[in-house]
Amino acid sequence: MTSTPQQPAAPAAAVRNTPARVAAWSAAMGVSLIVAIFATPMFWLMYGQYYTFFMAVFGVVAIPAGHLGRIRGKRLGGRDRGLALLAIVTGWLLLLCVLLIVLAYAGLMIGVTALFSFAS
């Protein structure tokens, strides 16, 4: 009976939780867009639809990637599980900000329309 040589296990430092890192980067990019809204309000007024769209995209990417990172982190002994949880929470907060921005914009348009219809 011949035995096949066993491959040595990969060192723990070489194993990365890539979904958690993707989720964290996506959440960080979304938060940077929120910071950019407050730092450069003139650009947001001119290109607000792009800011809002990319905040939604980054939030939508962060949530499922964060869940995958939590699952993979459990298999890796807890590696980057906290980072993935932070990305999930940040992703949901990004989507909440997007919802508030869209509702504020819709309310502004309805208010301006009502103002002009009552004025004429």
Score class of each variant (00 low, 15 high):
Pro5Ala: 15
Gln6Tyr: 14
Gln7Asp: 15
Pro8Thr: 15
Ala10His: 05
Pro11Val: 11
Ala12Pro: 13
Ala12Lys: 13
Val15Ile: 15
Val15Asn: 12
Arg16Asn: 15
Asn17Phe: 11
Asn17Ser: 13
Asn17Ile: 07
Thr18Arg: 07
Pro19Thr: 11
Ala20Gly: 11
Ala20Asn: 09
Arg21Asp: 11
Ala23Ser: 08
Ala23Gln: 11
Trp25Glu: 15
Ser26Arg: 07
Ser26His: 05
Ala27Gly: 09
Ala27Lys: 06
Ser32Trp: 10
Leu33Trp: 01
Ile34Trp: 05
Ala36Ser: 15
Phe38Pro: 09
Ala39Val: 14
Thr40Pro: 10
Pro41Met: 13
Trp44Leu: 12
Leu45Trp: 06
Leu45Ala: 15
Met46Leu: 11
Gln49Thr: 08
Tyr50Gln: 09
Tyr50His: 05
Tyr51Leu: 12
Tyr51Phe: 13
Met55Leu: 14
Val57Thr: 05
Val57Pro: 00
Val57Tyr: 00
Phe58Ala: 08
Val61Gln: 03
Ala62Pro: 07
Ala62Cys: 12
Ile63Lys: 02
Ile63Cys: 00
Pro64Phe: 02
Ala65Arg: 05
His67Ala: 13
His67Arg: 11
Leu68Asn: 10
Arg70Ser: 08
Arg72Asn: 14
Lys74Pro: 03
Lys74Thr: 03
Lys74Trp: 08
Arg75Gln: 14
Asp80Arg: 06
Asp80Met: 08
Arg81Tyr: 01
Arg81His: 02
Arg81Val: 10
Leu85Glu: 09
Leu85Gly: 11
Leu86Cys: 07
Ala87Ile: 06
Ala87Leu: 07
Trp92Phe: 01
Leu93Thr: 00
Leu94Gly: 01
Leu95Pro: 01
Leu95Thr: 00
Cys97Gln: 03
Leu99His: 02
Leu100Ile: 04
Ile101His: 03
Val102Cys: 08
Val102Ser: 08
Leu103Val: 02
Tyr105Asn: 10
Ala106Tyr: 04
Gly107Asn: 02
Gly111Cys: 03
Gly111Phe: 00
Leu115Arg: 06
Leu115Gln: 06
Leu115Asp: 09
Phe116Asn: 12
Ser117Cys: 03
Ser117Thr: 08
Ala119Gln: 12
Ser120Lys: 11
Ser120Phe: 09
Ser120His: 03
